[in-house]
Nucleic acid binder design. Structure first.
Length: 687
RNA sequence: GCUCUCGUGGCUUAGUGGCAAAGCACCUCCUUGGUAAGGAGGAGAUCACGGGUUCAAAUCCCGUCGAGAGCUCCA
């Protein structure tokens, strides 16, 4: 789908270029946010992945964007912000070397929200050090030093770097291809000393870090870094109130675990303090929605130290909601022509040798266990089991497509450091399905999957998607014709659905092309959940067959697909998306009855029984607290509807309803309440 | 796994060499109260675990375990 024929203005983001300044064949995606039309407010912005190569922005491999963007002011602003961030990284590196002269510099690129710089230094940077570095950076910014670009001779700069003993920079220099222009950027005049004198003194006798103070920067000094640029012209172009140092983290030199560990300081930088403030607020909002905190507060789930990391315990309220999600999922799949499977959690290791997982996926598998001298494996994937279920019978082409679906719990080894709440765990439930079909059925089946995906995701409140189509990589199995057929089927399905997508050229799995769908949450973050993959490999490995019309044995096509991806992770996304305020159909407790005093207890009990009988998830507050406290508790537990029962309600046989969204709604009859509830539940809405 | 930060009643946190504190939750009693905290009392901690330094360790040092952030962005 082409971009809308409206002016498109890029407001943030940056293309990634190859080392030679041009894009290589495969340029990484980078999010670019654009306004659809001049005059739209920033609330109307949308995001897309664009690529930049051959001096042009490319969207979906067409050259739609170039003429609209190249001359626009916003592009200039974009580049300016990028330059500010890059310069900010240099200013930070300079500040660090002023304060801690023993530190060696490495690289300092920009990020989506700011920049970082990796340093080599024995002593760790402390949070207090960050404060000192920030102060030093402000001094450098206030000195408004010029930033000067200089093209340099390789041998000359090499000698200079050697003299400074900047071993990492030397390595970088050596990695720059011969013939490329080598540049350095000065902060301050090249004629000055490299760093303030005090820095040189510090080099001899390092004081206690606690004694290190920001150093006033004279105009005459300079600092430089080997760098491709670009930068702003003066340090004063950085707003000294629009940047902040955020954290220190470990990072490996060249991102390689076997190489030296460096200290990375992350920072954020913006053009104005207001933008910084907005960014910090977004961060605070994300923290407010953190599913780990809400999961504990709302008593949904826990992860128990005694049991081990990455293993989830679902508590009654969390389990209730999970049950509702699973129940919904099963009905939706049965309606869409799937059949349900249950398969074991462990099986003979041979199965994973056949499937190839043991060769390709071993580092994510738990060790096998010995059962009567046979190796058994806890399952990291469901697919081989579904293949075995298929192979239990001989299938006719008339039976295809067969759609097997399972909420299959798998266990994968994840390194302890990457575990994260529900988002990254060691045991999780895939909403897995495998479609076995004829080659000619692929396109129809994919459309079916896309329709089901859209229905399910939108029922959970996710209506914005970002779609990727990943095509054949260099190393792959299967025939050219097979890939062509499958890829065309995916394209056809996407076009049929009318969905815009981004083609990730060569980004497919080795066994087939795929479609990935990312959902956008309430605060604009994207999460990849759904995936649809065509597989030529497993049918081959397991020698799967069906009997064709002419009686010959043919190989079926296998389509893997998941909509939630991981039920645990999707649940975590739901918590963050709704900030714990779930729509009525999902809320673990839908209604809580609050008696004003003991006298209404009997009436409240009978109302509660009625509602429960009618299928609502209802609870009666038996704490004996005053009404105000009962309401406060219900609000803190984010219960969507409370019904107050006092003397008045008993007399009139009504309930006073208060919802989380709308507050006090006044009295209504039980029938009226049920109508309202049913309405909200049917619309999958909040009340 | 690696780097840094952090582990104090069920929860959230204070205390950073000298008697283990507070709020919430829990239990008991009083209060029968009308839309976000009524009052009083009580119980509850081997300060993650193991070792060391010290007259004295929650606090300092070493180790172990666990949690959090980061380890994709490449002069």
């Amino acid at each position: 789908m082409p971009l809308p024929k409206k002016p498109v203005i890029i407001v943030t983001g940056i293309p990634i270029l190859g080392r030679d300044g041009k894009a290589s064949d495969r340029v990484k995606f980078r999010r670019v946010i654009f306004l659809q039309q001049l005059g739209f407010s920033f609330g109307d912005r949308e995001s897309l992945n664009l690529r930049y190569y051959d001096n042009d922005y490319h969207y979906n491999n067409s050259i739609m964007v170039s003429q609209l963007t190249k001359s626009s002011l916003q592009i200039a602003n974009l580049e300016k912000l990028e330059r500010i961030r890059h310069t900010c990284a240099h200013v930070m590196a300079m500040a660090v070397q002023v304060l801690f002269p023993e530190t060696k510099v490495t690289i300092g690129p920009t990020t989506d929200t700011g920049f970082y710089y990796d340093f080599a230094r024995q002593q760790p940077f402390t949070p207090e050090d960050l404060t000192k570095i920030t102060k030093q950076m402000r001094l450098i910014i206030k000195a408004n030093l010029p930033i000067i670009r200089e093209e340099v001779d390789r041998d000359e700069i090499k000698a200079e770097i050697e003299q400074l003993e900047e071993s990492y920079k030397l390595e970088i220099l050596d990695s720059i291809p011969q013939g490329a222009t080598i540049t350095r950027y000065y902060i301050g005049s090249p004629d000055g000393g490299r760093l303030p004198d005090v820095g040189e003194k510090l080099k001899d006798a390092l004081p206690e870090p606690s004694l290190i103070k920001p150093v006033k920067i004279p105009k005459s000094v300079s600092w430089w870094d080997l760098c491709a640029g670009p930068h702003v012209n003066y340090t004063g172009e950085i707003n000294h109130q629009a940047f902040a140092l955020e954290s220190v983290a470990g990072a490996y030199w060249r991102g390689d675990e076997t190489k030296a560990q460096l200290q990375r300081i992350y920072g954020t930088a913006w053009e104005t303090p207001e933008q910084l403030e907005a960014y910090l607020q977004q961060k605070a909002e994300a923290k407010r929605r953190d599913h780990r905190r809400l999961g504990k507060e709302l008593k949904l789930f826990s992860i128990q130290e005694d049991a081990g990391g990455g293993l989830v315990f679902w508590h009654p309220r969390g389990a209730t909601m999970r049950y509702i999600i699973e129940d919904y999922w099963r009905k939706a799949h049965l309606d869409a022509g799937y059949e349900l499977l249950y398969t074991p959690h462990v099986a003979n290791l041979e199965l994973w040798k056949t499937s190839g997982h043991f060769d390709f996926y071993r580092e994510n598998m738990f060790d096998s266990m010995d059962i009567e001298e046979q190796a058994y494996q806890i399952k990291p994937m469901n697919c081989p089991f579904h293949v075995l279920a298929y192979q239990n019978d001989l299938h006719s082409y008339r039976e295809l497509p067969l759609r097997f679906a399972e909420l299959g719990t798998v266990y994968r080894y994840e390194r302890s450091g990457v575990l994260h709440g529900l988002m990254r765990v060691r045991g999780f439930t895939q909403d897995d399905a495998h479609i076995f079909c004829l080659p000619a059925q692929i396109a129809t089946e994919i459309v079916g999957v896309l329709n089901l995906t859209e229905k399910i995701l939108s029922d959970f409140g996710f209506k914005d998607y970002e779609v990727n189509l990943s095509t054949r990589p260099d190393k792959s199995v299967g025939t050219d014709e097979g890939w062509e057929l499958a890829t065309q089927a995916l394209v056809e399905a996407l076009n049929n659905k009318g969905w815009e997508y981004i083609e990730d050229h060569g980004g497919g799995a080795f066994y087939g092309p795929k479609i990935d769908i990312k959902i956008k949450d309430a605060i604009g973050r994207t999460w990849q959940c759904s995936t649809i993959q065509v597989d030529f490999n497993l049918p081959e490995r397991f020698d799967m067959e069906y009997v064709a019309a002419d009686g010959s044995r043919q190989r079926p096509i296998m389509i893997h697909r998941a909509i939630f991806g991981s039920l645990e992770r999707f649940y975590g996304i739901l918590i963050e998306n709704y900030a714990g305020d779930f729509p009525l159909w999902l809320a673990p407790i839908q209604i809580r009855l609050l008696p004003v005093s003991e006298e209404q207890r009997e009436y409240a009990e009978s109302v509660a029984a009625n509602l429960k009988q009618a299928g609502y998830r209802v609870e009666l507050d038996r704490t004996g607290e005053r009404l105000g406290k009962q309401i406060r508790n219900a609000e803190l537990e984010k219960i969507p509807v409370v019904a107050v029962v006092g003397q008045r309600e008993v007399e009139h046989q009504t309930l006073s309803i208060r919802t989380r969204q709308q507050g006090d709604l006044g009295a209504m009859s039980l029938v009226e309440l049920q109508e309202n509830l049913d309405n909200a539940i049917a619309n999958k809405a909040n009340v």
